[in-house]
Computed example of a mutant assay.
Amino acid sequence: MTDIELKIREYLSDLTSAEQRAAKYLSSNFESALKMSVDDLAYNSKVSKATWIRFSKSLGYEGIKDLKKAMITNLQNAVNESQAKNESEFPELKNNNTIKNVVARITENSITAIRDTALLVDEQVVENAAKEIAKARSIRIFGVAASGVVAKDLAQKLTRIGKCVVYFEDFHENLLSTSCIQADDVAVFISCSGRTKEIVELLHIVKQRGAKIVAITKFGKNDLTEIADFKLIMSSPENEKRIGATSSRMAQLIVVDILYSTILKNDVQNVTKHLNDSYVISRHFKDLTN
């Protein structure tokens, strides 16, 4: 039983009759309800949208969106707890995994990560983070291991549109670079767990330097969500003990693309010039090597 279902059972008698109908519908349709809009929830449960909002607040959430964020976390925790019972084994390595099963599992996990991340996107936070990056003196990007691959992708994208970007793969180089960070810089930290030792160490230094901090991390309480000024939340159905980052990397890349596209839409004239210039240069090089 998830935390939300426990809350429903605990608070049920204190809810209005209409809220109780919403509660019973949610309990019976937990996973499918996650994919529904508030209009769909109201129609299918035969209670009003206002009732669903009141019901969400009665459970301690700010509204439907906040409730859905908690639902995603609840479902992920349930999966992780189930996998943890057999933590000595990696389910991906079972001998009965045919290529067909591998394709289906990877596809489903990636789709789930993308869909759930889309539900967690806070449009205003993305907009504010994009504006902060656009006006920054420089953008410092931090990510290690699999998150480093995503950090490098963001660095390449921002460089292409003329931003002053600093990104290092080596921790010691990152450590040295923090000494140059100023209050008019923006630091982007990418970490699925939000608790990676190297990232947390750099995070505290950057915070002391006064730069604005953008975090790309999973939903929940961690060092990044506690400290960052702008929290871009991603979802991942992966267990902590895994064969490698797969769906979590996909979710991070989706957030990067959303952030990058928002920066582009806010400054079309300037970014178009930079994009055209980068295309001409790269096209010329390709022509020379053909």
Results as ranks from 00 to 15, higher is better:
Ala136Val: 00
Glu198Tyr: 00
Val102Gly: 09
Leu224Pro: 12
Ile114Thr: 04
Glu173Ile: 02
Thr73Trp: 13
Asn101Tyr: 07
Thr262Phe: 10
Gly210Ala: 09
Asn270Trp: 13
Ile243Thr: 03
Tyr279Arg: 10
Asn96Pro: 11
Thr159Met: 12
Ser191Met: 05
Gln83His: 10
Ser261Thr: 06
Thr217Lys: 00
Asp257Thr: 04
Gln83Gly: 13
Arg242Pro: 12
Lys24Cys: 04
Lys207Gln: 07
Gly194Cys: 08
Ser248Leu: 05
Lys157Pro: 06
Arg283Val: 03
Ile72Cys: 15
Leu176Ala: 11
Cys192Ala: 05
Lys197Ser: 09
Asn239Ile: 11
Asn101Gly: 09
Glu226Thr: 07
Lys221Gln: 06
Ala33Tyr: 09
Ala211Leu: 05
Gln208Met: 13
Leu93Thr: 09
Ser48Arg: 02
Ile161Leu: 10
Tyr279Asp: 10
Ala130Ile: 03
Ser27Val: 02
Asn80Arg: 09
Leu264Asn: 07
Ile263Phe: 03
Ala78Cys: 13
Ala84Arg: 10
Asn276Cys: 04
Leu175Tyr: 14
Lys7Tyr: 02
Phe30Thr: 01
Ile72Leu: 14
Ala104Val: 14
Asp153Tyr: 12
Glu123Tyr: 12
Thr159Ser: 12
Arg105Asn: 15
Ser236Lys: 12
Ile99Asp: 14
Gln269Leu: 11
Asp122Ser: 08
Asp122Ile: 01
Gly210Val: 01
Ser278Asn: 11
Lys286Ala: 01
Ile281Lys: 13
Gln208Asp: 14
Tyr167Thr: 00
Ile111Arg: 12
Ala42Thr: 01
Val166His: 03
Ala130Pro: 05
Glu92Trp: 11
Val188Pro: 04
Ser110His: 15
Leu41Pro: 03
Arg160Asn: 09
Ser247Asn: 05
Val121Trp: 03
Glu87His: 08
Val206Cys: 05
Gln269Gly: 07
Ile263Tyr: 06
His172Leu: 09
Ala42Leu: 02
Gly210His: 04
Glu10Thr: 10
Thr2Lys: 01
Arg9Tyr: 08
Val280Ile: 10
Gln252Ser: 13
Ala211Ile: 02
Ala187Trp: 07
Ile4Gln: 06
Glu198Asp: 02
Gly148Lys: 02
Pro237Val: 02
Val149Thr: 06
Ile258Glu: 11
Tyr61Asp: 13
Asn128Glu: 00
Lys68Ala: 03
Asn222Tyr: 03
Phe55Arg: 03
Leu176Gln: 11
Ile227Arg: 08
Phe30Arg: 03
Lys231Cys: 08
Glu5Phe: 07
Lys221Cys: 02
Lys212Glu: 13
